[in-house]
Nucleic acid binder design. Structure first.
Lengths: 120, 120
DNA sequence: CACAAACATTGACAGACGTCGATGTTTGTC
DNA sequence: GACAAACATCGACGTCTGTCAATGTTTGTG
């Protein structure tokens, strides 16, 4: 009982399109993809994008929750939640003074994401 | 019955942090945020990031579904679903030849997103 | 120390999302 | 025209996510 030649030597069939993953190393790893996706997920929300923009546009490039709640049109807990997501993702920093929590942009964070995208 | 002065003339209390939205025009509009968020959502998934990378790394910068299903480790319907999301978002183009559907990157699409981010 | 203000956290709920199996559609082949 | 291959679509299911009301925590004030 002999094996067909095609199974011993998988020739590249010109009629087929499915080339056996030419250079699999060139693509990003699943771990890299997971990491980048997690960062992008933090940005992929209209409320959070507006928050980033509003913080950047605010005086001194910093703002507290009460500055953001009303113009955003969302409840205070929801705003706090979004801000936490942005802090955890490294886009904002939180500094508490008195009863207020001031948020400000992390300088190169957005540019770093932009650089990540061009490398994909 | 008189109104308190504070309600007639809301003075800017220096002890308070909540400045009345200094320059609301400087921030992005809700419509812009919605649009950018929709684009980022298409990217914010590890499987889709890997698909983009695999298409870019493939010979001729184009690949069909059967090229991508096995190395991605997901079922064919799921891969088709992700590819559709990427096409709808403008990151990939689909061209059908014979029974195969070839996907290729839209040249400047990723850079456009990167530019969007720096403008937020 | 009691009270109020700013903010975070919790619990709950509706809707969106990723995934798969099953099925439909198109194209080439015998 | 029957059949197979490549791919898309559909239906269903579990999980994640955005949102809010209620509550907890911390800080300043009288």
């Amino acid at each position: 009982m002999r094996m067909p030649v095609a199974e011993l030597l998988p020739v590249t069939d010109v009629t087929a399109c499915c080339t056996p993953i030419a250079n699999a190393d060139a693509a990003i790893t699943p771990q890299q993809a997971e990491l980048v996706a997690r960062t992008l997920k933090a940005l992929a929300d209209p409320a959070r994008l507006r928050l980033l923009s509003m913080v950047a546009a605010h005086d001194g490039a910093e703002a507290c929750v009460c500055d953001l709640t009303e113009p955003l049109g969302l409840s205070q807990p929801t705003v706090s939640h979004h801000l936490k997501v942005l802090v955890d993702a490294g886009f904002l920093t939180r500094s508490k003074r008195a009863t207020w929590a001031y948020y400000r942009l992390v300088p190169g964070s957005l540019d770093a994401v932009a650089a990540l995208l061009t490398s994909v």
